[in-house]
Simulated assay, not measured.
Amino acid sequence: MRDYSITIIENQEKKQKPDPNQLEFGKHFTDHMFIMDYTEGTGWHDPRIVPYQPISLDPAAMIFHYGQTVFEGLKAYKTQDNRVLLFRPEKNMERLNMSNDRLCIPQIEEEFILDCLKQLISMDQDWIPSAEGTSLYIRPFIISTEPYLGVAASKTYRFMIILSPVGSYYKEGIHPVKIFVEREYVRAVAGGTGKAKTAGNYAGSLKAQEVSEKLGYSQVLWLDGIEKKYIEEVGSMNIFFKINGEVVTPALNGSILEGVTRNSVIQLLNHWGVPVTERRISIDEIYESYKKGLVEEIFGTGTAAVISPVGELNWEGEKMVINDGQTGALSKKLYHTITSIQNGNEPDPFEWTVEVKPNC
């Protein structure tokens, strides 16, 4: 690992912290941020923790014109005995480099960045809320900064990490949400950028989300981009179905993001002896199984919401009410187990959590 020296500039004008019982998702930001730059020929350099602040970019910076950017999302949790835990952060660093590769962005040194992240969290650990359902959301991201209007990979980049105390992502919390099955718009296709965590994937999803919300639905269920038949993701989450005692989830196919929570759920189900299969699933199969009374539960998984039960699917006007619109027993168990491990309230048999030491 390269021998870096991290500059730390402490914020002398601390912000007022929000009410921990009134937190929205992604509205408030802590006192500090991490920044590191990349220059072709030099590599990544000048890592620093500085006061949270605006950034200045040339109007011709390539991020504005060609969208060469990647990001991640993970959380820090405050335990009852005042420890700070991260949940599988090494998986997020690995995925960030996978996204970097797809977007032609230089690789980061994962172990070093994780150390920098721990230092940043240690400085702002007073911002970590401890109320039930709250956490400190962590957003690492990289943008292309070279001022150039030719279509090519940038020669300069900026890597930043910002922190945000958050409540539940969905106002419904662990309660079921209503989902609209999207048939006109698509999220991604195999060979595209679907498996990378890049901004364009999310910008392209906004139109379908807008339409679904006008119809009274919280999110959309994405189908494949070729036949518009096979299930891929729900909103910005991975999706699971419990059908006749077996849990099935779409297999990773190059257009589906490899979620950290998805991976954790699969490990837990295997640990519990619950049958779980990764395979291709069509919306027709779900509808036929529903008509036979075999669809027991549906839930999405992701860092922000952890587990988001689905209470209703609307497919071409056919409303499928799942489990009488109630949260299923398996969804509850998964949510309770994962959040209890994240908060240090339950044993961690998989060694998923990483402690952030004070002043590390």
Rank of each mutant, 00 (worst) to 15 (best):
H45G: 08
F159Q: 04
P309Y: 00
Y290F: 15
K155L: 03
N244V: 06
C116R: 02
R2S: 13
S236G: 12
G344L: 08
F29M: 07
D19M: 09
P309A: 00
G328I: 03
W127H: 10
E297W: 10
I8F: 06
P89V: 13
V151E: 00
P59R: 03
E94W: 05
E355Q: 15
L96Q: 11
E346T: 09
S282G: 00
E278N: 11
T337F: 10
C104R: 13
A304V: 11
P176K: 10
I341P: 01
G200E: 08
I338S: 04
I63L: 14
Q219G: 06
R48W: 01
Y52I: 06
G328D: 03
P176T: 04
K118C: 15
I49M: 07
T301N: 08
Y202G: 06
I9R: 13
D3S: 13
D115Y: 10
M320Y: 07
S236D: 07
L257Y: 08
A199S: 14
C360R: 12
A208C: 11
F141R: 02
D46M: 05
N97H: 09
T198C: 15
E40M: 12
Y185T: 08
I341R: 01
Q209E: 14
V50Y: 00
L257C: 10
E182Y: 10
Y170P: 04
I55S: 04
T30D: 08
P51Q: 02
V310H: 00
V70Y: 03
I161D: 01
V276I: 14
I239F: 03
E318V: 14
T339R: 02
F25I: 07
C116I: 04
Q125G: 02
E355V: 06
E182V: 07
K214I: 02
L120Y: 08
S164G: 04
F29D: 05
W352R: 05
S56H: 13
W222P: 10
Q125R: 15
N270S: 12
V295R: 10
V295K: 05
S164E: 11
K195W: 02
S122Y: 01
K333A: 15
Y77M: 02
L149G: 09
Y202P: 10
E285D: 14
F112L: 15
A329M: 09
A131D: 12
L330G: 00
T156N: 11
P165E: 07
G67P: 04
V321P: 00
R95G: 12
F64N: 03
L23Q: 05
M237P: 09
M93I: 00
F34A: 00
F25N: 05
K207V: 14
L57R: 01
R95Y: 09
Y170T: 05
P18D: 08
